[in-house]
């Protein structure tokens, strides 16, 4: 069953010297439980596509249907609720809040839910243990290594149990070994049924995914399948 369906999506920007086409008519289907990589060089449009899929950047034309919801027909505030309920983001460079501890960073997405602080803390603690940081909950981001910060970012993205997880260059700021550990973590999450869409230009990461979609100049160039989806 398709959890995401992208229909004829285009995106043009006013680049100062006329309109710039970032995406020129993209069609894409993502199945539930899939681990998809969006691959392409800088400026290819992959990050634009990720932001459109992530319900934060309306396309110029076309539709994005997630779980039968046409997300850009929702109002801005309803779309915020949708992001809270459906999507988890692992940003480039981790993007942790520097003055909050690891557990407080992970609790952020729960802060806007009706859960009590105790429940939020328990959930955050459980997910930090899952990513192997149960003993570093009270540390500030600058007291953690790059790999650990990435794990906190992943914990923050999945603490709400979102159906879809987006990751933007998750290994970009990490050394090879740590990058592999993080990809192992993503693979484990995917095996548990988590749908993951990852933007990368690191070809070494592709073996961890099920499918890679190559983008060039705002168009889908080709698709490579590596393994069947887990569920």
């Amino acid at each position: 069953m398709n959890i995401i369906e992208v229909r004829n999506v285009t995106k043009t920007y006013d680049g100062g010297e006329g309109l710039v086409t970032a995406l020129g008519g993209v069609n894409l289907k993502v199945e539930e439980g899939e681990f998809l990589a969006l691959v392409g060089p800088s400026g290819s449009g992959k990050s634009t596509l990720l932001s459109i899929l992530g319900a934060i950047n309306p396309p110029t034309n076309g539709e994005v249907i997630i779980d039968d919801i046409n997300i850009y027909e929702l109002s801005s505030e309803r779309r915020a609720d949708f992001r809270s309920e459906y999507l988890g983001f692992v940003f480039q460079q981790f993007q942790l809040i520097p003055y909050l501890t690891a557990i407080e960073n992970v609790m952020l997405p729960l802060a806007i839910t009706n859960r009590s602080t105790t429940e939020q803390r328990e959930m955050a603690k459980a997910v930090l243990e899952k990513v192997g940081l149960g003993n570093k909950c009270e540390r500030l981001p600058n007291q953690l290594s790059g790999g650990e910060q990435e794990r906190v970012a992943i914990a923050r993205a999945i603490v709400n149990h979102p159906p879809i997880l987006f990751a933007d260059e998750p290994t970009g700021a990490l050394d090879t070994k740590t990058g592999q550990e993080i990809m192992d973590l993503f693979k484990t999450l995917n095996k548990e049924g988590q749908t993951i869409i990852m933007v990368t230009h690191n070809m070494d990461c592709l073996s961890y995914t099920g499918r890679a979609v190559f983008i060039r100049d705002g168009l889908l160039e080709k698709t490579e399948e590596y393994r069947k989806k887990v569920i």
Partner: peptide, 9 residues
């Protein structure tokens, strides 16, 4: 970041 993880305006 707040907005993208679902914080309303």
């Amino acid at each position: 970041i707040f907005r993208s993880i679902g914080f309303r305006k």
